[in-house]
Design a protein around this nucleic acid. Structure first.
Lengths: 130, 130
DNA sequence: AGGATATTGCAAGCGGCTTGCGAGTCGTCG
DNA sequence: CGACGACTCGCAAGCCGCTTGCAATATCCT
């Protein structure tokens, strides 16, 4: 099964390059239609899935906004959701750096292998415009 | 609008008291039917919503298992999901204790107000039985 | 250019959750 | 204690986000 190049898929990838943050399916659909105005929802879903399986995208489950997708391959990071504009940003740094593994006191016998951290607050642009 | 006592709601609350961990709607439904065998899905959804609005329950959005509910009012804690049995546990302790607020390096202008941490690994009972 | 087939758009389908409705249960008041 | 009003329940239909079957279209290879 050979992968073909289509305007739809190219448009979707372009949307992610233009917006350097996790995006919802709806955002991808709307932004993608600026390039391919017939772009269909099913096509977006199918391509997001394809790009994720192929490792180009990464699916994120957010606590409040449902599923978002971000470009994969970035270094370990977490997410920040602005409670004003609801945009989600990627933030570097990690409270569980190697020397802090034990910070979260797990009960005896439990072993943690990975983690996800979600921060909530106000982003810089919302704070300035308030 | 006066709240009435019903066997259904009592059964649902009992399920949470019997299992001291976050539960899915389906788990509540199945376990609740042991006490009220006619218990209906819609009733469970309605009561979980009611109990949440009233502050007795808290809704949790997990990255992999969807929505769970836990008894509210506990002190600040996070969650641990066992990748073997998929159960979610509450874990005390927090990598963002007061003296470590700045561990996650937020960009300038960003202000964090709250956070959620989700750990993944192996729980004690799965580790022993392996 | 021509043919094989990946991909798209559309519409139907699916699963989780919600809601309208008539029946049933709970609590109160006479 | 019995009856009425209102909250709840169970059921079925509905809604929403996502997936899938299918015919038409676009790509790619020769």
């Amino acid at each position: 099964m050979m992968r073909r190049k289509t305007n739809q898929r190219a448009a979707i990838q372009e949307v992610f390059r233009d917006n350097d943050r996790p995006l919802s399916v709806e955002e991808v659909l709307q932004a993608g239609r600026k390039a391919v105005e017939t772009l269909n929802q099913a096509t977006v879903y199918r391509n997001l899935k394809m790009l994720t399986e192929e490792g180009w995208l990464k699916k994120i489950n957010t606590p409040e906004l449902g599923v978002l997708y971000e470009v994969a391959g970035k270094k370990h990071h977490h997410h920040f959701q602005c409670r004003s504009c609801d945009r989600v940003y990627e933030v570097e740094g990690c409270a569980f750096a190697d020397d802090r593994r034990s910070l979260c006191g797990l009960p005896p016998g439990f072993v943690a292998e990975s983690h996800e951290i979600f921060l909530f607050g106000i982003c810089a642009s919302c704070r300035l415009s308030a």
